[in-house]
Amino acid sequence: MELAFVIEKFVLITVIFSLSLVVAMYSTLAERKIAAFLQDRVGPNRAGWGGMFQPIADGAKLFFKEEIIPTDSSRFLFIVGPSLAILTACIGSAVIPWGQPMLIAGREINLQVTDINVGILYVFGIVSLGVYGIMIGGWASNNKFSLMGAIRAASQNISYEIPMGLSLIALLLVTNTLSLKEITEQQHGWHWNVLYQPLGFILFLVCSFAETNRTPFDLPECETELVGGYHTEYSSMKMGFYLFAEYINMFISSAVMTVLYFGGYNYPGMDLVNNILGPTWGPLIGVAVMFIKIFMFIFFFMWVRWTVPRFRYDQLMNLGWKILIPLAIANIVITGVWLTYVVK
């Protein structure tokens, strides 16, 4: 029994890990294809059918490039930076419920690596750690543009964590639990949290753009002012790690938004489908639905990137502190009043 448990979790972790890597890999292709579509171009179409092997070619190229470590950098921290970035990007997926429990060979398998009772806070903690990879790498490069990028990343991350946390508090008032599994189960069918927390969802969405350093919040790597931002000095696969971490972060934050606000694996009419297909194949449809939602969020991330121009630094800070935080506090108050006087 114990061994079966270990094997089950090991397989699950391996599958989720490789899935997030594959999704991140093909996100790079999707990003270029969507950019091409929005700008009326063709996009990468040489490697394989419709550019299918482009990410593999890119990865191989990065691996075979020369590795340069600047002489005046602090060597150890220069290597720690990208490693930390990719590590914090990967461990966020541990608490996300990917589907309903599945029945395989008479054994009920939870499609979630671990259900800790502070699940949301765990995700939040990992998100707040993500900035260390950028900061350490930017500082260790011993380059003023890298340092500027690192400092921008730190201040942006700290500023946008506050409205993100505040919008989560309003959500928690509705759900009454911190466990991601229970939050998903509460959204059975069409009772998605976005219907109860529309403002909270928009705030969370904006903050996730800022936390993943995506345009219009990509000031840490703003190429028109800072050369390449925090990864100016990086080359080869270390640079690849930084770029890759951004796409994994995008995938994980899409998954988190799906679970928190868009019902995770729930969809209208799921009971009927589960009854027809049985406990083995029914949950798989749920997993597919979850991934469709995640891909739609990833598409939204890219759509915004090629639509909205980058903010100026003071605009970024004004938006965070003077607009998002008051809105988030108002959201908490409205939710509290509504829950005490209307629902009761």
């Binding site: 800790i116 903690g125 707040s128 900061m135 500082w139 690192a150 730190a154």
Partner: peptide
Amino acid sequence: AQFLAIVNFIVYMGAIMVLFLFVLML
């Protein structure tokens, strides 16, 4: 003490130390 653990993680590691690092880098 899971809650204290995660709060220590978020507040001290994730926020206060980022500010420390921020100031020292400057």
